[in-house]
Design a protein around this nucleic acid. Sequence first.
DNA 1: CTAGTGAGAGGGTGTTAGCT
DNA 2: AGCTAACACCCTCTCACTAG
Length: 220
Amino acid sequence: MNVFEYPLPVTTVDAALLTLRGERLHVALHRRENIPEQGKLALPGGVIHIDEDVDTDAAVLRVLQQKTGFIPRYIEQLRVFSGKRDNRWDWSVSVAYIALVPLADLEAAGKGVFHFYDVDDLPVDLAFDHRRIIAAAVERVRNKSAYSTLPCALLPEQFTLTQLQKTYEAVLQVKLDKANFRRRIDAMGCVIPTGEFQSGMQRPAKFYRFENVMVFNKAL
DNA sequence: CTAGTGAGAGGGTGTTAGCT
DNA sequence: AGCTAACACCCTCTCACTAG
């Protein structure tokens, strides 16, 4: 019993780690090694260490650092999921986060721990209420991408306008007109040429980078 | 071997009609 | 009038092929 003389729920953080793979939005999941829900696929997450974590933001950054070896470029609190979420605890609270990561970063740092699943075609054996968390995360990302530069967090440091357009199309699930897309991006004034070009089979495309790193990760 | 040429693909821009 | 979507077109590059 605690100072309030009421039982307190176990509090955890979970992160929906989203990335772009084959022009589809994917979520990174790992197989749980411990009970409960042993063997099921789960989002990276963990219990808050009150002696170590200043707040839930710090907790999720610590968990991601431990499990992936790096800090995502974009991380945002999604919402709180609470109630009887599994059969170990009567009542628990999870502060859920969204993290957007370029696939290359995730594959390089994930040490083979993570498996990637299309967010629109999730496996059946998901642990806890992680299906709900993923659905909420995807909805948030899609809604926000319609009016922001959020999808840029899925791209590497420098990218071509075609890569940027394909990223928006993958996230929003719509086909965009090239000319109009470029005009809109130009009007937003959020990308600037790096002066470098992508060499390939066709005319080299200009590389761009984002001028303003958005929102974000106060740990950086 | 080298230079010229055309096809193909993707980058980038201009124009116009419709809507608010 | 201003904005947006849609369409058309030109530009630039690589690659494959061919003739000298």
